[in-house]
Design a protein around this nucleic acid. Structure first.
Lengths: 216, 216, 216, 216
DNA sequence: TATGAATGAGACTTCATTCAT
DNA sequence: AATGAATGAAGTCTCATTCAT
């Protein structure tokens, strides 16, 4: 720690502090995994992007897989946590909350590198079972539970009609996952797809389908 | 002559099967591409699966990319052609035709290795632009045109209400693509997803949304 | 032989006669070896050029090396034999004979595919010792002996001054070998080299150097 | 710590030698290219010769072609540069300079592995056009220009008679190139060729031919 | 005799991971 | 803590030669 004393208090631009290393690596890893996918990502590229050497990656992360899990933990899970929190503090209608959550997801996930992680995971799950299990348990199922609970609440509150909340949660989430996938897949070759329109129509259908007053 | 006797009935180092080889290789390639994806597929594995040597693959296909394109031409395009033909010979309602087409797709694509090709392509398009363009032009766009025309016909015939046929085609196809993706992605880790139910509900929503008499 | 009877006398264009096969193969081999070299020549290419299958090559020639040796025997050795014959029947001066021999060599070797064989052999001798020995003994040394004898004769006849006939033979031959090499090497990239001028100047120097009356 | 003791003094799997590696690899490459030629050189062999793994080659050189170009730059070009420098600092006669340059070339090129590069290039130019162009521009043409300028200077100084300096440069260089070729071609099979005598006679002829006072 | 499908060793090259420094 | 040189297994693709037909 001795050598850090001179850094105390001062922001030392020319020598990044050790504490920042993992974050820098994770940011680089997010960017690279997101654009190239898991298998096609070269750790040399991550290292270069992070401004460290390849060896340094292994000081902080045991392996490529561990690095990916860390990326998920660092960037994906907080998104879910934030949504959960927001739900807990929500006082308005569930319907409005869900609209807002989708909007935020579009801004914070779909339009950022995070959507690349979703796509990557779906794309390569079958080749990396460990990653698949990790992602399924920590991201997919948790999100599904969260949305399902929201819907249950909506039903209890009389906003939504009786329905299978698990299934409804999937109906809500599937178009989101799909748009993330498409965004990083054929969309660049096929500019005719308007993701926002697609999502807003789906939201519309979803809400109409689940609302108690849908046929009034 | 003595040494030839031992060959009688024995396993030869190889057997001549000009006619069947390409089909055998394509079948093996379909299986492997479908389950592993493009990049992760090793030609050695395809060769083993086909019961030939690595070199033999190159007698029939110029490269890994060419092999994949041949798989698409051999297995995917005929599916589309068949659907197009069926549409041409259709005498009943467009609505019933679309129901039938979806059913057939479930049996012939979703529940076979073919869906793995769809998933593979979506998963790896960004890493293999040549393949992406090929697939987009020959499969995606052709299918979209086909379905869009079907919907236009339905509108002309008064079955469907006025709507953007391109968008409607996407609405019809997207859940199919998604289910193919999921099937080969996290579904094996997440047995709670009933694809058939998902698809039938989506079909229901789609048809209700597009029918002229839906809310009359 | 039975099936050849029907061919008797008639030139049957649509079915080349067995007797012609080896010659066709040799011609194709000459062409390919000459332009590509030994190692870079693919037997598939030779076969295609000859209009036969790869397997057929092995009916007539044991291996790639044997095929090359046959090319030398078929096309190169006769050139030497012809020169030897011509020398035997020569009645004029040795000097004029050598001029004529060089002229003929330019027409029949340098400007044909045969020069490619010379170059090829020089280029790849070290990688194919068997070929090297074969070529050295059957072509190089025989030619050297021939020219040396010619020079000895010239000395005996009083046309040439006393000198080491072996060395003089080399002095005569080296520029020929060099021009054959260059022709198939950097000449195509370096069009400023006029081979004919180079050779005629060398011939001039050689004859002046060896003539009895050179300083008269 | 116990397990580290065994490493003391032991043969490590590898040793870190950033500084020396490129030189070691280049030396190994020179040796191998020189004796086997470009196509027949296996990178595995170069690696073994250099005492490194195949992968290590790629840390320093992008490809086999790049490695060869580096060999030329490292070993061939400095020879030319040295000769050019020597010419610049020369105070004596051009004739004596050219004699000295040839002598040095015999020692530093002909009798070393460098002559193998000359031969290799001539031998394989037609199969590797990129290499051919590179070599022609950087070695052949530069050398020709250098010698031609020397001859022009000799003419200006009154040492040499009026003549085409380009052609004379070729006349000077051609026997050198030829002896390099022969050295690595049939010479090992044909010990009767005395390269030094060949070269000295050619030098003699060349100087006599070009000297102003040759026949005075 | 003729074929050409089939082989398999071996070429160049890539990259996650290790470890001496 | 940090480096980055080094590894080596594994990938795609080539081609002389073999042999069932």
């Amino acid at each position: 720690m001795g050598e850090l004393i001179s850094n105390t208090g001062a922001t030392c631009r020319w020598r990044r502090r050790k504490e920042e290393r993992p974050a820098e690596i994770l940011a680089a890893a997010l960017k690279t995994f997101s654009s190239k996918g898991f298998a096609a990502t070269k750790l040399a590229e991550v290292a270069k992007e992070a401004g460290v050497s390849k060896g340094t990656l292994y000081l902080y992360f045991e392996s490529k897989e561990a690095l990916f899990k860390a990326v998920v933990s660092e960037f994906v899970l907080p998104q879910i946590a934030r949504a959960e929190e927001q739900a807990q503090q929500n006082t308005g209608s569930i319907k409005l909350l869900m609209i807002k959550l989708l909007e935020q997801w579009q801004i914070n996930v779909l339009e950022t590198e995070l959507s690349g992680i979703t796509k990557m995971m779906i794309a390569e799950a079958s080749n990396f079972p460990d990653l698949a299990t990790f992602y399924l348990e920590n991201v997919i199922q948790r999100t599904r539970r969260f949305v399902a609970n929201l819907i249950k609440l909506g039903i209890e509150k009389g906003e939504f009609r009786q329905c299978d909340s698990d299934y409804a949660a999937r109906a809500f989430l599937t178009p989101m996952v799909f748009s993330a996938i498409w965004q990083h897949s054929l969309a660049p070759f096929d500019d005719s797809y308007d993701m926002n329109e697609y999502l807003s129509i789906h939201l519309d259908i979803f809400l109409r389908g689940i609302s108690k007053d849908s046929f009034e």
